[in-house]
């Protein structure tokens, strides 16, 4: 937390004192985290540390028991988004991917991305039935934007495939493209490199930095691949048993004895 003073950029997301209880189990205990514009922030920790729960609280899938989740939108307003529905939060500009891939398998790759455009378009049922100019224009816009995003993640040549036919790595990239289609200012990636081979991980590494630079999107990611995390993150938050045990730059985290003991140390011995 001490490191936050040295971080530049406008504050985008501000989480403070976030606690999430499931019955008697405290999955996330008083965790705070800030994300600034243009940053890649990593959330790491052993399995079961509460990282995904933290994600779900921030994106509205769960309502946190206590604590605040605030976002600072582009127009300078601050909004508390605890308990807001996930689709509203996505509408406000935070989009996510899932740890266990959640695509729409029976829809084509392009259609998957077009779903991301849903909250940025407003064609109503009547528009669609009557084929109004608005419906035609938005349809065109959705297709073009989605196709350009597919190009960006390298999936343009399989745009008409069913998404279930894609390889694992490609499905992960498709999830990222779909999330980007919602025009987020903050992208939340839940273990994007899980199940990828080293080559794919390396490509992902490039993709994430490229997205940050070109799309002007801040990124919060959960990841177990330490090489990837240390390579691309500006700021790291470490969790263990629901508690936050350290925050700082990759260098600080590497040297933090608590982290080494809890997490990296085990990895090193393994």
């Amino acid at each position: 937390m001490a490191a936050s003073s040295t971080r530049g950029g406008k504050k985008l997301l501000e989480v403070s004192g976030l606690t999430m209880d499931f019955g008697g189990l405290r999955a996330v205990d008083n965790v705070g985290l800030d994300i600034h514009a243009g940053e890649i922030v990593a959330l790491i920790g052993p399995n079961g540390a509460g990282k995904t729960t933290f994600f779900n609280c921030v994106t509205g899938i769960y309502t946190p028991t206590t604590g605040d989740v605030r976002i600072h939108t582009a127009d300078g307003a601050t909004r508390r988004i605890n308990g807001m529905k996930p689709n509203r939060i996505t509408g406000l500009g935070m989009a996510r991917t899932f740890q266990n891939i959640r695509l729409f398998p029976a829809m084509t790759v392009l259609e998957n991305v077009m779903i991301g455009r849903h909250c940025r378009t407003g064609t109503t049922i009547l528009d669609a039935i009557l084929g109004t100019s608005r419906s035609a224009r938005e349809e065109r816009e959705s297709i073009d934007t989605s196709y350009q995003l597919l190009k960006k993640v390298g999936l343009a040549d399989v745009a008409d495939e069913y998404s279930r036919n894609l390889s694992y790595g490609a499905q992960r990239r498709l999830e990222i493209a779909r999330a980007l289609a919602t025009e987020p200012f903050l992208l939340l990636l839940d273990e994007p490199a899980a199940g990828m081979n080293p080559q794919e991980t390396h490509e992902l590494d490039e993709l994430i930095t490229r997205i940050r630079d070109e799309e002007n999107v801040a990124i919060l990611l959960i990841e177990h691949d330490m090489k990837l995390v240390m390579n691309i993150s500006d700021h790291i938050c470490v969790m263990e048993y629901g508690k936050e045990i350290a925050q700082g730059t990759p260098k600080e985290i590497k040297e933090n004895p608590k982290v080494i003991e809890a997490y990296l140390g085990e990895e090193a011995h393994a």
């Binding site: 996505t90 996510r96 829809m107 064609t123």
Partner: peptide, 20 residues
Amino acid sequence: RVGRAWMALREDEIACVAMG
């Protein structure tokens, strides 16, 4: 747009909501 949202809902409700 409406029909795609329906299909997405059929395929995966959580992902559908998370996509706005």
